[in-house]
Design a protein around this nucleic acid. Structure first.
Length: 152
DNA sequence: GCCAACGTTGGC
DNA sequence: GCCAACGTTGGC
């Protein structure tokens, strides 16, 4: 799961009550489909900072609530407002996630590129813009193994 | 700030 | 359905 630290970073997640937040504002159908169809309760996700001086994977979170209506799309004042969405016909969903671990050693793109397994990750692909994208089990395990984790 | 890549929009 | 124009993403 990508996020821009200037908007909502991993540190912001840690400050939330129960280190839990609604992952809202996804307005891309492909990314939405992943949340809607693939995210199951207790699944783990990697948190990645994009559009920043130091893009990196730096945390792990858990799905605590599966996809449900992202009502920010219905609020005209909200930055994620979508005028075409309406109550009862809202295409957008959010999930709730809870921070679990901080990576002891955040993995930046240079580190990912240099690794024989992690160099294949979607986030490194040219033109990769998907804010929600699948991670292979072996990739996930490798990230935890070489980064090390600390409970938050 | 630049710019390539991509998704979306809308005229035809 | 095609495709040009446009807006956004995001690394660098």
């Amino acid at each position: 799961m990508k996020t821009e630290p200037s908007v909502f970073g991993f540190e912001d997640l840690l400050k939330c009550p129960h280190k839990t937040t609604h992952w809202e504002g996804v307005r891309n159908y492909q990314a939405r489909n992943f949340m809607r169809d693939e995210f199951k309760k207790n699944d783990l996700c990697l948190i990645y900072h994009s559009n920043t001086d130091e893009p990196a994977i730096l945390g792990v979170a858990k799905v605590v609530k599966e996809a449900y209506s992202d009502d920010t799309a219905l609020e005209p004042k909200n930055r994620y407002y979508d005028e075409r969405a309406s109550k009862g016909r809202n295409p957008w969903v959010r999930v709730d996630i809870q921070a679990l671990y901080r990576l002891k050693r955040p993995l930046n793109r240079e580190v990912l590129r240099a690794h024989p397994i992690l160099c294949k990750m979607g986030v490194l692909e040219k033109g990769s813009r998907l804010s929600i994208q699948p991670v292979k089990p072996v990739e996930f395990e490798t990230v935890l193994e070489i980064a090390g984790v600390a409970k938050v």
